[in-house]
Design a protein around this nucleic acid. Structure first.
Lengths: 360, 360
DNA sequence: TCGACTCATGGAACCGGTTCCATTGACAGG
DNA sequence: CCTGTCAATGGAACCGGTTCCATGAGTCGA
């Protein structure tokens, strides 16, 4: 091991000032594009900066200006595949801005509260983007007190701007699609309504489903709505149970693509053809959905991240809290190859000849 | 819009000192667990901290200590699905440490060089984790000069510790598996060897493949080795071309799971059965590979991220540059349902009856 | 020609911590 | 009883920037 302390010489603003034969204040003014510097001095200072390869210390700058050129993103880190796409959008928006992206990973309520506790200070992050997690109201209040601009993404809260999807509408879209194809025995697989981090997307999508079913006058057999943690394997298990029922559903609406893949797995394992025996609709349109040929409700994940980050950056730019508007992004049903009209006759229980196990 | 400046009162170390009736230095000593504080004073200070809900300003602390409690991670942001899993590992390792995770997204060489230019300073990040990107040697030298500890993940460089996979060996494993099943006409789909960011995993895996084929005395027909950007759709297109050949391969080794999914898509589109007509092996074992039933070379992605981060944290802990060792993680062939022995007779060109289009 | 004003600039104070140094008081040893 | 040691502590200096204020030079109108 080598001792770390033999650090290279660090060039400070004083060095630049000395080299250019000016005061430190002037160098600072040049750095910050202040108009109160003559062209000749500016040129001399810039030359010195170039020569010495000077880069201002972000900590010092942050300390004296009371901001840290940092944007905090609180994410339930990749527990949902969709978070990754959103994060990409955020990163894209930050690109070229002068802000660094600090990630606060949340995988449990304890986690979340810890982070919120330390983030209610302007010195940790200049702005906060909270993804998918409904922030506790008192945290929101403290953040507002501290003057930390907050933008919510895929969740919402009082008095704070949010970029959201109309999950209820999405649930309606998916259900409608299945009803329009002629399905009536449509089951639902979604998140636990009381999941530890309080994600609400699943429940909203479920609400859309329930509304639409009710509106069409279709009754839900008991047990047609299943809940479980947001994991493929769980969705698969829930679906296996559904598919073993005498009144087997002819279609399943999964509240996310990840879960929909679990549904497809279960169908495959049961020797059922998709969409011949069962239709499947997902939600999100993550990257692999294209591969799986999954019919799904597309929401603009990347764009949502980008938009949220832009709103935050704009607010930081002009030193105002962002307008507490809700930005609702559009949804679109992407029809691929996992939905079709129910097959007549074959739809009655498992008595129908199971088709050969679908490949892969 | 509301003016940001009406910020809540910020509690400083001076306030705490005043409340506890001690000097600022003493408070600082308490904060940093210095032994030179009497128990009674310590208690008084802690009480004041509690009472005022004081939290030290990280910028100020960073400025005076010359470190920023931040760990920079340079990532080709999600251009490979595997990066996400690795990042999760990194986040997991950081969890509970006092370090924040700052993400530096890289999607082009310009990007990369910009980041490296600003990161060669101890004040931007206390340590740097560089993922998958072979860092330019002069950047590495400057980082070393500045005393910034660096750990490489999925790439390597002189004098710097690295956590790597033996990609060549992985290529051998995959090819061996196919040869052992009886395949001879084994094609390869990989990354462009001169891809803009200089990823080398693809080429190494290819090397393993070539070695093994040569070792088995199997000649590669021209065009059996295909290259293209690391994207599913491209891999699909390349495979379509392969599958249309008169001497169609009976197996394809894709240098990553993402690409393998493209291969599977192409096979499906061509009406070929997997593994009946074509066997497919991938590399990485990302989450969806399980869903796709893909036979693949598993590398411990999450663990690799975790290990790399730990090495870096340890180095930061004791103020030394980490030992420039290479940590090589194990590989394992995961056999699922996309590989099987080649079917006799059917293996000669497209004359064989194409099986029905696989579902989904 | 002189005062009022503008403009570029240097320098000090400040941001909120850490750390070194000097001071104080207690205590042990001679 | 005096001195040397040492632990606990207050306070100043410092980290490297930004910003306010004072200064001096130059401009302009009366």
């Amino acid at each position: 091991m080598v001792d770390t302390r033999e650090r290279g010489v660090v060039v400070t603003i004083a060095d630049v000032a000395a080299h250019a034969g000016v005061g430190a204040g002037t160098v600072s003014r040049v750095l910050n594009d202040s108009p109160r510097v003559s062209d000749t001095t500016r040129a001399r200072v810039l030359a010195a900066i170039e020569l010495l390869d000077y880069r201002p210390n972000p900590l010092a700058r942050g300390l004296s200006r009371g901001r840290c050129q940092t944007l905090g993103v609180v994410v339930p880190f990749f527990t949902h595949a969709s978070a990754v796409e959103r994060l990409r959008g955020v990163a894209a928006a930050l690109d070229g801005s002068r802000y660094d992206l600090v990630l606060f990973n949340v995988e449990s309520p304890v986690h979340r509260d810890e982070h919120f506790a330390t983030l209610t200070r302007r010195d940790r992050a200049d702005g906060l983007l909270i993804m998918s997690l409904p922030p506790p109201p008192h945290s929101l209040a403290r953040l507002a007190d501290a003057g930390v601009p907050v933008v919510l993404l895929d969740t919402s809260g009082r008095g704070v701007p949010a970029v959201v999807t109309d999950d209820v509408e999405g649930g309606r879209l998916a259900t409608h699609h299945l009803l329009a194809l002629g399905h009536e025995r449509i089951a639902f697989i979604g998140d636990d309504p009381d999941n530890p981090l309080g994600f609400t997307a699943g429940s909203s999508r479920e609400a859309g489903y329930r509304q639409t079913m009710a509106g069409a006058g279709v009754a839900l057999p008991p047990g047609y709505v299943c809940h479980g943690p947001h994991v493929r394997a769980i969705a698969r298990r829930l679906t296996e149970r559904l598919l073993a029922r005498r009144d087997r559903p002819t279609a399943v609406f999964a509240s996310s693509d990840v879960q929909a893949l679990g549904v497809l797995e279960a169908a495959r394992a049961a020797g059922l053809d998709v969409p011949g025996d069962v239709s499947v609709v997902g939600f999100d349109d993550v990257e692999v959905s294209g591969y799986a040929g999954l019919t799904t409700v597309r929401q603009p994940l990347f764009e949502s991240g980008q938009l949220a980050a832009r709103i935050l950056l704009d607010a930081l730019e002009d030193g105002h809290l962002p307008e507490p508007r809700e930005h609702r992004l559009g949804l679109e049903l992407v029809e691929r190859s996992t939905t079709a009209p129910p097959s007549i006759g074959r739809s009655r229980g498992l008595s129908a000849t199971p088709k050969r196990n679908a490949q892969r």
